[in-house]
Computed example of a mutant assay.
Amino acid sequence: MKIALATFALFLTQLVFAQNKTTTYYLIRHAEKADNSRNPDLSAAGTERAVNWNRIFAAIPFDAIYSTDYKRTLQTATPTAEKNKAQIILYNPQVLSFPDFKKSTSGKTVLIVGHSNTIPAFANQLIGKTIYNDIEDTVFGNLYIITVNGDSVTHQLLKLP
């Protein structure tokens, strides 16, 4: 009887933990751009920042890396994508279905690269509350980390130089 009860308790524990998959989102703005044209490349400082993001993320095994379809976001994501041997998945924040996105990334570790106005809005959608405002034009070091485990959502903003 004790063995059956212990087996049932173990099964129940595994069932509870299996349903509470942890999902972690890392969100960053693209690095510094070369100019103010519509679709600029990264500047030398931006290229250096993209490499630095890769160093910061070195110990994180990303399951998926998302970027908008602009040179500056793709170039920011590329070093980390190459390290993780991951294809960059393009997204359009204006038409993205957040329920579908959350479902498809459930249980994964995800990097999302976007823009000064889209990354805070994306973070707010993932959190389910309006917490973060647009990023100032001169700020490129914000790192938003959002962790979802079941109904529990935690978030933090790290401001890196």
Rank of each mutant, 00 (worst) to 15 (best):
T22C: 02
A4S: 13
N20K: 15
A9H: 00
D134C: 07
I28E: 09
Y70T: 15
Q94D: 15
V51G: 14
E82D: 15
Y26V: 09
F122Q: 01
Q156Y: 09
N20G: 09
G114M: 05
N39M: 00
G46N: 06
S43C: 03
M1F: 04
N142Y: 07
P61R: 05
D134N: 14
V95K: 15
K2G: 08
I112H: 02
I131Q: 05
V148Y: 02
P61L: 04
L27K: 07
I131L: 08
G141K: 04
K71H: 12
V153G: 01
N84R: 13
K102D: 00
Q94M: 15
T154R: 06
T24D: 03
V110L: 00
I60R: 03
G46C: 06
T7E: 03
G46P: 09
Y66G: 11
V51D: 15
A44P: 10
L42S: 04
F8A: 10
Q87K: 14
A31M: 06
L96N: 12
S67C: 08
Y66T: 10
Q87S: 13
I119N: 01
Y66V: 10
N36L: 12
H115E: 09
K159L: 06
A58V: 05
N39Q: 02
S116N: 11
S116V: 05
N117G: 07
L143A: 02
F62K: 02
T68Q: 08
V16Y: 14
T147H: 02
K102P: 00
H115N: 12
K108H: 04
I28P: 09
A45D: 14
A64D: 11
V113M: 04
T68L: 08
R38V: 10
N36Y: 12
T80L: 12
P93E: 06
A34V: 06
Y25L: 05
Q94T: 15
F8N: 01
M1P: 07
L15S: 14
N36W: 11
K85I: 10
A4W: 11
R55M: 09
Q75P: 14
A121S: 00
V113G: 03
P79W: 14
P40E: 01
K2L: 10
A45G: 09
